[in-house]
Design a protein around this nucleic acid. Structure first.
Lengths: 198, 198
DNA sequence: CGACGAGGTTACCGCGCGGTAACCTCGTCG
DNA sequence: CGACGAGGTTACCGCGCGGTAACCTCGTCG
């Protein structure tokens, strides 16, 4: 039934299959049996490549975290103005999320927060993002702590907006990543300063 | 060992104990055995009050969602200006989160997102919040969709900021809820319009 | 053509899970 | 003082879990 694969290819396939399972059912809700079955092999093959379920999930998590961070930071780096960097970063974020929904759900919904070791990996990713953004904020007389807080808020906007976006547009991505990024960048940039008393 | 309790009190106690377990270990990671043990009774007592583990979690989830929504909307309603409502809402949110950390983690970290039924309860809560906020946004020529998106962004800021806040201040709440709310309200209100090119 | 090693499978282990049937205890009230 | 019902426990069920020991298969290379 299943063809034999060289070790490195099998390992890559198992990581990809595991990502999908973990995204759908979470860490605790996914069994090694089902991952193996989905990959078309038996369980001991899984244990030849990964020492334990925890180790497998940890690798999946670190993998997607790195991929997302790399894409965003590269995109942000291509812009020349702070506002362009914010917009470019959001655009890269949403584009990545659209192409890799499973990666997003594993990072932010698969129960990673419940485990100290896994939470640390996600935290590392968020901290990287926030630090980059904090460096863009140059408001007169703002304390570093306050700047960091604002940066975390921006990261939060991207995360929660992505969740709503993926939820509402099950197949077709209704607002395009670019359009969504433009709207959200405006929010992050300008806030609600347009609000007036009714 | 354990005293006998009238049904209504026992039920209330079981909900409280279950909240703590679910907050710490998630839905899938919590067993009915452990909840019963933590409550000082045996498992069949749990099943006298709740038909299944899913039913118990659903009740816990709906309970905390209602409590949080009620507090925030009441606090926001007491303010007289839009900006005051935003600030008051954030303050109520953070104050609630500080007093009920477990409630926060059950809503946003216990794996509720992985199950369609549970996700719907959390979504309902977020939608209530967002709708209230959207009504405060009266920017000239802004489409309803865009307004909703901005409102979701605000809700996201509160959620993610809370997570970081609880994480960094394990016991003492370093910035007070009031101070944190003031800072975050400023972000939501004014955004990053102070950013200048370096 | 045969040895050997990489890539696999079969078949099992003990455990804790969600859930339930049957039974016990003890305060209350005629 | 005895019946009864609310509030509880004991003891079990089948199942799927994470993980492993032992064995098989087949292309490659001397």
């Amino acid at each position: 039934m299943s063809t034999r694969l060289p070790a490195s290819q099998r390992r890559r396939q198992l990581l990809d299959v595991a990502l999908i399972s973990f995204a759908r059912d979470g860490f605790q809700g996914t069994s090694m049996n089902r991952i193996a079955e989905a990959a078309g092999v038996t369980k001991p093959v899984l244990y030849q490549h990964f020492a334990s379920k925890r180790a497998l999930f940890g690798e999946v998590l670190a993998d997607v975290g790195e991929r997302l961070a790399t894409e965003i930071l590269e995109a942000a780096g291509r812009a020349t103005t702070p506002r362009g960097q914010v917009a470019g970063g959001f655009e890269a974020y949403f584009a990545f999320v659209a192409r890799n929904r499973d990666a997003f759900f594993v990072l932010f919904g698969a129960g990673s927060a419940l485990d100290a070791e896994f939470a640390a990996i996600v935290r590392r990713f968020e901290a990287d993002m926030a630090e980059t953004i904090a460096d863009l904020i140059v408001i007169e007389g703002l304390s570093p702590d306050h700047r960091r807080l604002l940066a975390q808020g921006i990261v939060g906007i991207a995360e929660v907006t992505s969740r709503h976006w993926l939820r509402s547009t099950d197949d077709s991505l209704d607002p395009s990543p670019e359009a969504l990024a433009a709207q959200v960048a405006t929010l992050a940039w300008s806030g609600l300063r347009g609000i007036e008393a009714p």
